[in-house]
Design a protein around this nucleic acid. Structure first.
Length: 281
DNA sequence: AGACTGCGGAGCCAGGAACC
DNA sequence: GGTTCCTGGCTCCGCAGTCT
């Protein structure tokens, strides 16, 4: 069983693009969130994408938008092959091109995380992405500047059409909706003492069924997901307040400081104090 | 105050079978 | 397809103690 939960501070470079094809069943091995924006474009196949508290079915021609610190994971759909292009970038990368309102990044704040493109839109977006890949491969003079321009064009296109994309209705099964509600419940109640049994009672299903279905639909075990939310909040409190580690453990739902420290280290690779003392605070 | 370790009970996970 | 029940194996998590 994969119990790995990771917080990634990825990207030595401010911009990263990659194209990958998987012929067989592939599940993202790590449940994670990171300090960069992510744009995921599905060239072929179908996937399920878990973001924050919702499961989104993703098909060919869909764009997935992952904001900084959004918990996410891609998952297999009926053992189907797929091919995707993934872009990660830091805000700094396009900072010179942002206006005062940072409107290029508005699309990452939308509740709608997956947008479906029609055929002509797919063609337009793919042409931009292929140019990006070409630039990144050849690394000719000024390639970073051209990548900035291409990324800006892509973000402009998405933001200008966001209103239309937000009207799109996505199909989700009733069980996916229910698991989304459970995930939302955990996001809103992580600071309380929560058990699988208690949540199962809240949603009128048995603990074993909740456990199994939650894992199947989200890719996270119940505890993995709960801990990831708690540690995400703990990082914020360590960064933004002067509260003691014990206080933060209590505020994030951990009854034991020992256990808090252990989970924190498992997810971030360092103890709470080491995290607070990191350069940049 | 916080980090770390060992221990043990509680609770979770996941597989199988069965029901509706 | 969705759900429940049962169960063995395993992990989680809090406690106690020690060290820095």
């Amino acid at each position: 069983m994969d119990r790995e939960l990771k917080v990634y501070n990825i990207l030595e470079q401010p911009f990263y693009i990659t194209r990958q094809k998987h012929d067989t069943t592939f599940n993202m091995p790590v449940c994670h969130y990171h300090n960069v924006y992510e744009i995921y474009y599905l060239l072929e196949g179908r996937r399920n994408y878990f973001i924050q508290n919702k499961i989104y079915p993703v098909v060919k021609g869909d764009i997935v938008l992952i904001n900084i610190n959004d918990i996410h994971k891609t998952m297999d759909f009926n053992n189907s092959a797929h091919e995707r292009i993934l872009i990660n970038f830091k805000k700094d990368f396009i900072a010179p091109l942002l206006d005062d309102n940072n409107c290029l990044l508005d699309c990452f704040l939308s509740e709608n995380k997956v947008i479906h493109l029609n055929v002509s839109e797919q063609s337009f977006v793919q042409s931009i992405l292929m140019k990006m890949l070409e630039e990144d491969r050849k690394k000719q003079k000024g390639y970073r500047t051209y990548e900035k321009i291409l990324l800006t064009e892509l973000l402009l296109f998405i933001n200008r059409n966001m209103e239309k994309f937000n009207e799109q209705k996505r199909y989700s099964s009733s069980i996916q909706n229910k698991m989304s509600e459970v995930a939302l419940y955990l996001m809103e109640n992580y600071m309380k003492k929560i058990s699988l049994k208690q949540v199962a009672e809240e949603f009128f299903i048995t603990p074993s069924h909740l456990s199994r279905t939650f894992k199947k639909t989200t890719g996270f075990t119940f505890v993995e997901y709960l801990n990831s939310i708690r540690i995400k909040e703990a990082r914020k409190l360590l960064k933004e307040t002067g509260k003691s580690v014990m206080e933060i453990a209590e505020l994030t739902g951990f009854e034991s400081q020992t256990h808090f420290g252990r989970v924190f280290k498992q997810m971030t690779g360092m103890s709470p104090l080491q995290y607070r003392k990191q350069p940049g605070f």
